[in-house]
C-alpha cells in the first residue's frame, strides 16, 4: 500500500527517498498518469509542497553558495511552476506555450521536468542554454550537476532535486520541430542565449538527451555568425552515438533561425 509523506524539510525528503521504490512528487502531472496507467504502487510518495521556500524563484546573491557568480543568476525551487511569471524571461518573453497545456503548465514544475523519467524533458534545452545546474541533495549533502546529464531513469534512490540554478540571459531564442505548435513533443530543438554564462543547447530526437553546444558563445554574439553557430550545433549533434542526416539538416535550419531571432531588431526577444 502506498503511503504519502509530506516532507517539511529537505532532510525528510532525502531520508524518505532512500526507500528503493519511493517516488517524489512535485507537480505530479507525469507521476499520476504513470500510476494510473501502470497500476504501480510505490511504497511511498514523497510530496515536496510543504517544504518552506520550495516554490520560490529568487536571485542568487554573490556571497551565497558555491555556485553563485553574480546577481544575474537565479535559483528556481523544486516546486516552482512552469507557468510562473518570473520565468517568462527565460522563455523568450512569453510562457513556454509549446509545453503541454496551460492547465498542466500551472501545475507542472520546472525541476520536475528536468528529472522526469516519464516523458521528454522539454524544458532542458532552454535551461541548458542558460547553463542550468541542478541542485541535488542526498545524505552526503548538496551537489550540482548539469541539467543535460540527469540519467534517463532519473535520480538515484536517496537523491532529491532541490532546485535549478540558471544564468539570466540578455536575449534568448528557442526553435523546435514538432507536429503541432503546441501539445506536441519536440522532435528537434535548439535554444540559444546571449548573456553572461549563457550559450546554446540542442535536442536531437523525441525523448533524446539534450546536449550543450560547445564553443557557441562567440558565434551567438556575432551578428554574422549564423553559419558558424549552425556548424557548432552540427558538430555537437554528430558527436553523439547515433547520427541522422535529416536531423543534421533540420538542426542547421533551426540554428540559423535561433541566431536570426537573437539578432532581430524586434524588442520581444529582450529579457
Amino acid at each position: 500500500m502506498t503511503t504519502h509523506l509530506f516532507a517539511s524539510t529537505w532532510g525528510e525528503a532525502v531520508y524518505a527517498a532512500r526507500t528503493a521504490d519511493s517516488v517524489i512528487i512535485g507537480g505530479g502531472t507525469s507521476v499520476q498518469p504513470w500510476l494510473t496507467s501502470t497500476g504501480t504502487e510505490p511504497s511511498v510518495l514523497i510530496h515536496l509542497r510543504d517544504i518552506p521556500g520550495a516554490g520560490t524563484i529568487e536571485p542568487i546573491e554573490a556571497s551565497e553558495g558555491p555556485l553563485a557568480e553574480s546577481v544575474t543568476r537565479v535559483r528556481i525551487g523544486a516546486m516552482a511552476r512552469i507557468s510562473d511569471a518570473a520565468l517568462v524571461p527565460w522563455f523568450g518573453g512569453v510562457q513556454p506555450s509549446w509545453f503541454a497545456t496551460p492547465a498542466v503548465r500551472r501545475r507542472a514544475t520546472v525541476v520536475g521536468n528536468v528529472v522526469s523519467r516519464f516523458g521528454p524533458r522539454e524544458l532542458v534545452p532552454v535551461l541548458a542554454a542558460c547553463r542550468g545546474r541542478l541542485l541535488v541533495m542526498d545524505e552526503d549533502g548538496l551537489r550540482t550537476m548539469d541539467v543535460t546529464t540527469v540519467p534517463p531513469a532519473g535520480l538515484a534512490d536517496g537523491e532529491v532535486a532541490c532546485a535549478v540554478e540558471l544564468h539570466k540571459p540578455g536575449r534568448i531564442a528557442f526553435e523546435r520541430v514538432s507536429v503541432r505548435p503546441s501539445m506536441s513533443r519536440s522532435e528537434i530543438a535548439v535554444a540559444g542565449a546571449i548573456g553572461r554564462g549563457c550559450g546554446a543547447a540542442l535536442s536531437g530526437g523525441i525523448g533524446g538527451r539534450s546536449m550543450f553546444v560547445e564553443d557557441a558563445e562567440s558565434s551567438l554574439v556575432d551578428p554574422s555568425g549564423a553559419e558558424r553557430f549552425a556548424a557548432a550545433c552540427r558538430r555537437t549533434y554528430c558527436s553523439g552515438t547515433e547520427v541522422d542526416s535529416d536531423v543534421v539538416r533540420l538542426l542547421s535550419g533551426l540554428a540559423e533561425r535561433v541566431h536570426r531571432a537573437l539578432h532581430a531588431s524586434k524588442g520581444d526577444r529582450e529579457c
Partner: peptide, 19 residues
Amino acid sequence: MLTRDEIRRAETYSISAGI
C-alpha cells in the same frame, strides 16, 4: 529556500522524524 541549516539537517536527519 535552501539554506546551510537545511543541508546540515539533511545530514543529521533521523528515521523517526520522517515517520
